[in-house]
Design a protein around this nucleic acid. Structure first.
Lengths: 140, 140
DNA sequence: GTGATTGCAAATCTTTTGCACTAAA
DNA sequence: TTTAGTGCAAAAGATTTGCAATCAC
């Protein structure tokens, strides 16, 4: 199931999103999308790029993450004030947040059923519904 | 229904929480709790204190907000990375978040029914479940 | 070429910290 | 007293911005 043209998909995705497939964006897209679903912060992604000898500035990582998010390639998840997580899974789903470790984990959408949701207030529309189940270690 | 002893309740609440009822804490508690349910940031509370001629440093506001939260008098709501909101309503309930304005509004608990919640992962317990309905302006 | 993109360093914003000073108990 | 609490200014993080240099088309 491994593509024989490892980059072309990503190049297409970037182009389709109206983003020039620059060396930096392509490298970041590879890190983000080639290993399945990930939840990552800008700082983490930058560190990972450095480890793999990909020279990208932190500012560019921030730019790319926001551009990808704007293009619908990523989704921003807010669970922690002072740190932004980006989720490569853009389908409807919710999250476990491990408060002790800062880890974020997907919950498939069908595992959470929301009933009796109030309608959006007058003059507004629902942009998204986030359900975050915050868990902590059991240990006494 | 207005108490004839406007401060004594708050003094009691602070003492009960193990917090000395200092001039600053008492003033902040009045701002927070005397006008019903509020959602406020540290910066906003500080500004409000200044307007009312209450001299409190921003650092003390942060300290007080966290101490109140630790004591169960407030609840911290995370909806916006980079800014913390504190909610004077500590009962079970959820929130509307107006992304355009940064406003936060309570949704009574009974308006949201969560079914089929997954159980907490092995070794963890659920600390809290947050439901945030993000709404934006309807205007085209 | 030329307009989009990048890197870097500085700026910004929120929150925390260190420490001398002040005030409850 | 004596110990908790406060103010201030500095520090710390995360993120953004300005601008010259660079790259994709």
């Amino acid at each position: 199931m491994v593509s024989t043209r490892p980059y072309s998909n990503l190049i297409e995705r970037l182009k389709m999103a109206g983003l020039r497939p620059t060396r930096q964006r392509l490298a970041l897209a590879r890190l983000l999308f080639e290993d399945g679903n990930r939840h990552i912060t800008a700082e983490q992604l930058h560190a990972e790029a450095m480890n793999r000898e990909v020279r990208v500035s932190l500012a560019t990582v921030y730019n790319a993450l926001h551009q990808f998010t704007g293009a619908g390639l990523l989704r921003e998840v807010v669970v922690d004030s002072g740190r932004s997580y980006f989720d490569t899974n853009v389908s409807d789903h919710h999250h476990f947040f491990y408060e002790d470790t800062g880890r974020l984990e997907d919950i498939p959408d069908r595992w959470v059923r929301l009933d009796t949701l109030p309608s959006a207030p007058e003059g507004t529309r629902v942009a998204r519904v986030d359900v975050i189940i915050r868990v902590t270690s059991d240990t006494l």
